[in-house]
């Protein structure tokens, strides 16, 4: 793209610097809806990873054959196919998790994170970069889902992955596994992210200012 980067860099940018949830604020629907436990978050993250990597791979291979005019429809067909595959596989292998995630598996199709990566990245680059980018982005998504899911399950049920952490007398914070808990936790995490970014920016500015003053004092 802009400057030549290694495929490793392409992957890492999705996890932190351009994190799809915390920085780009994409994919909010599954983010808020299925993160009421760590297991659900993990399942949703892995399903998204499968769909994103699979469709990025295909889109990147086919990018020269897909005419511009029908590209969005073609991407959607590709994405929807992968979503259907993961939907049926989950239903067959993990019916319990499928029941919990419910309508949000089919809704991965409409996750703008996935279509966005096809349109903005996979359709313009080689297969290797496309897959690494998809891995990074969905890794970042998985990381965000897990962060939210863990916090909500720890506070809301006193457990992580169903394992009780604080003993049977823990008073669960019911609101955390309800929808408002999702909004609250996400808001606080976003706040934290912005605070960290702002601190870094300030530090950089201060650093430059100090450099400038050194320059000036030399002159």
């Amino acid at each position: 793209m802009k400057q030549p980067t290694s495929s490793y860099q392409e992957m890492m940018k999705g996890i932190w610097r351009d994190n799809p949830v915390f920085v780009q604020v994409l994919g909010m629907c599954p983010m808020l809806a299925v993160t009421n436990s760590a297991v659900n978050a993990l399942a949703m993250g892995l399903a998204t990873l499968f769909v994103l990597v699979g469709s990025s791979f295909l889109v990147s291979i086919m990018r020269l054959w897909i005419p511009k005019q029908v590209r969005i429809s073609s991407y959607i067909i590709i994405i929807a196919t992968f979503v259907t595959i993961i939907d049926y596989s989950l239903l067959a292998v993990f019916p319990k998790i499928h029941k919990e995630l419910g309508a949000f598996i089919p809704l991965i199709t409409a996750n703008c994170l996935i279509l966005g990566r096809q349109e903005a990245f996979a359709s313009r680059t080689t297969v290797r970069f496309a897959v690494m980018d998809a891995l990074g982005m969905s890794g970042g998504f998985l990381f965000a889902l897990m962060a939210l899911g863990s916090v909500r399950e720890i506070l809301g049920e006193g457990a992580l992955f169903g394992v009780s952490l604080f003993g049977p007398n823990f008073e669960p914070w019911v609101i955390m596994i309800l929808p408002p808990g999702g909004f609250l936790t996400l808001g606080l995490i976003l706040l934290f992210f912005n605070w960290v970014t702002e601190k870094r920016r300030q530090a950089q500015i201060n650093y430059r200012l100090s450099l400038n003053s050194i320059e000036e004092s030399r002159v």
Partner: peptide
Amino acid sequence: ATLAIAGLISGVAIVSIYEATLPTI
């Protein structure tokens, strides 16, 4: 033609996964 081919491939994929998982489900 592009969309038809994409739809065809996708249809085949979906039908096979449906057939494969149906007994278990």
